[in-house]
Design a protein around this nucleic acid. Structure first.
Lengths: 118, 118
DNA sequence: CCTTTAACTTACTAAAAGTTAGTAAATATA
DNA sequence: TATATTTACTAACTTTTAGTAAGTTAAAGG
């Protein structure tokens, strides 16, 4: 009955969650929401634990989903600006609702984990 | 500035998202929300693409976070019931808000991906 | 005493994700 | 002349995650 939810190809939830739920996408979306416009290296400095490769490939997949817009200036050295699209902005409140839940419950969940480990 | 968000240990969002965002947790939480109480094999039948191993380990981690409660009946053959805890229930609306966004935007995002691939 | 059943667990394999280091390209500056 | 700048891409490698298949447990029924 819920089998279709487990089918990555055709399930909206799985499909979107595979994107949002990866290691960096949500972080980048929230960061772009705060900063409005950022260049590659600015993002890299803000999230210094991300590698160039992962930042580059995450931005690319966010661009493919039209959640992030990429604006290239034909200069050398390269200049590329990233910002949220309207679709990207429409996702933000849902992410923030999750973030909020996470913040509120973080300590209790940490305690539960410690308790469980015993 | 947002570096702390990238630190898995201490960041509430990363910490929770690492759990929710895995391959099966969200699906199981939503399923349990619909069905209220389920046994191991019932969940397994509902999500037939999950392996026993993944179901078992996902349920265990949801239990560790006290999102799911596990009730063991000391019988042979074994009987174990799973249901959402209050904390688990409190997460559901946030997940559903994401699910809803995903459903609404699924087709457009699929189209964007196709467009981008060209 | 052998099979059945539910809920796992373990050992192994495969696939996905992430890391690190190196490369490119035009110009401005030391 | 050499070097830094900026945004990537690529290749080689390591780590993490997921999946498969077989084994475990323990009581009851035939």
């Amino acid at each position: 009955m819920l089998n279709k939810f487990a089918d990555v190809e055709n399930c909206p939830i799985r499909n979107i969650l595979d994107r949002i739920g990866d290691k960096w996408s949500m972080l980048i979306l929230l960061l772009l929401n705060e900063e409005q416009v950022m260049r590659f290296n600015e993002i890299h400095k803000s999230i210094d634990s991300i590698s160039q490769k992962m930042l580059s490939s995450t931005l690319k997949s966010l661009e493919a989903d039209d959640l992030v817009q990429r604006k290239i200036y034909p200069e050398i050295p390269p200049k590329v600006e990233y910002r949220l699209t309207e679709r990207g902005k429409s996702l933000i409140p849902h992410l923030q609702s999750l973030v909020n839940w996470a913040s509120v419950n973080f300590e209790d969940i940490s305690n539960s984990r410690l308790q469980y480990a015993k």
